[in-house]
Nucleic acid binder design. Sequence first.
DNA 1: ACTAACGGTTAGTGAAGACTAACCTTAAAA
DNA 2: TTTTAAGGTTAGTCTTCACTAACCGTTAGT
Lengths: 107, 107
Amino acid sequence: MKTNLKIRVQALGDPTRMAIFERLEQGPLPVGEIARGLPVTRSAVSQHLKILKHVGLVTSQRAANRQIYRIDADGVAGLRDYFDRFWQESLQAFKHAAEKSSREKSR
Amino acid sequence: MKTNLKIRVQALGDPTRMAIFERLEQGPLPVGEIARGLPVTRSAVSQHLKILKHVGLVTSQRAANRQIYRIDADGVAGLRDYFDRFWQESLQAFKHAAEKSSREKSR
DNA sequence: ACTAACGGTTAGTGAAGACTAACCTTAAAA
DNA sequence: TTTTAAGGTTAGTCTTCACTAACCGTTAGT
């Protein structure tokens, strides 16, 4: 399982994978259930799930005949933290710019 | 400016756009400066910036001859909140599953 | 006015990758 | 044991889209 954050974003960049991901927000589902309602074949869904699993966004678990997929909370937490850092840094940059601007106005 | 969160993820799904985005984490930059150090032409960078701006991840501002691009903190906050929701929901689902499992073990 | 540097736009091309169809294994039910 | 349904894999096709090259307008300096 890759832990690189960028390839997780890349994985979710595909609309179908994003749809699968959002489908799993409701709760764990077997492959066939995920494919039902999506405009692609079960084969395509299976390939997408392989990628999502590989990048650490979902996990799977056998139940007899079925493979149950669910969202990997840790993987999602990584993404959240990643964007949180960007948010904080850009906010700080904005604050600096604002202060500088007000300094220039007051002279 | 589109406010749809999915297309922001889609926008960052491209490696070059992600590189541009991370480049802007250091601080605001003009187009030419961004292109310098990237393995693509300035034209490509300009097209990518157009997309990033369109989905609300960066903003731009003229300074005479130059276009200064910077990260849009609000846009990034949207992404963070989006993944935070997934994280919370999947964590809760995991907790439910764990409780159910321990109940079944204890009987 | 001319020149140089900036950035955006367009058309056309090439490569990456999403998709289907056909196949396989495995597990449970008949 | 045969059948049925599950899911994964592969080869091949086709579409999407990232990229370059050539162009344009704009601004500042000479």
